[in-house]
Amino acid sequence: MRRFELLEPESFAAASAALLEHPEAKAIAGGTALLILIKHGVYVPELLVNLRKIRGMADITWDAASGLRVGALASLNDIERSPLVREHLPMLAEACHVVANIRIRNLATIGGNVSHGDYQSDPPTALVALGAVVELSTATGTRELLLADFLLGPYETALEPGELVSAVRVPPPGAGWRSAYLKFTTRSSEDRPAVGVATLLRLDGETVREARLVVGAVTVTPSRMTDVESYLGGRSLDAGTLAEVGRMVSAGIQPIDDIRGSAAYKRRLAGVQAERALELCSTMGAAR
């Protein structure tokens, strides 16, 4: 490994200033994603800004009006185990729980997870389905962006120079919504997803009033399937409806070939997983 500089600021302002001053610098928190790229030699850092010494950025809070706010340095394990997340947004707890293994989840932060912009990840799919917003802060101010607009492509986000994700916010889902996140791996159970599907349903008896369906890990950013959402409105989730959803998802998505499956395989898999996720959501998904 080549030598690189490491800065360890103790305040958010100092970290932001360092990133602004050194355009080649990269922020690192848990390091679970970045260190793999460094060890593989694909990313050769010149300067890393370690965020771990910054205090007060890992809080998880809930407000009935504004919803959940997760500080960027909260670990995926913090989120998964948070009583607030489990009570109000169980799908997010599940999407964090299925990431890799406990050692990774203990280190990986939610800010790092979304900032890394890797399409093969579970939490972003659930967060996009939940309408999450990222707080992007510098030493002087904060702006907010929908996560769906923040993720631009592989390893590409809307972060401006000197900006860091300071928190992820999820609006309250409202009464009567059920949710489910379903991951499918093609290698080990700890692997990154070959496909991840996040779905939310508001049911009236057997009838779908509103639906949200996001397919992740097959396209460069999570894909919200709005045509499927419209199709589901007013229908019951019988075998015919589910089969049509599977067909629509397979037809409507343009998967990437990668080591977790060919594009053709993932196209079929995305449809099947969408059917399964909806079924899971309608039968098991906790109603809120």
Binding site: V42, I256, I259
Partner: peptide, 13 residues
């Protein structure tokens, strides 16, 4: 090499 091993979908894109 390393790039090919890790980044095929990204290279393709």
């Amino acid at each position: 090499g390393r790039l090919g091993a890790l980044g095929f979908p990204l290279i393709q894109r």
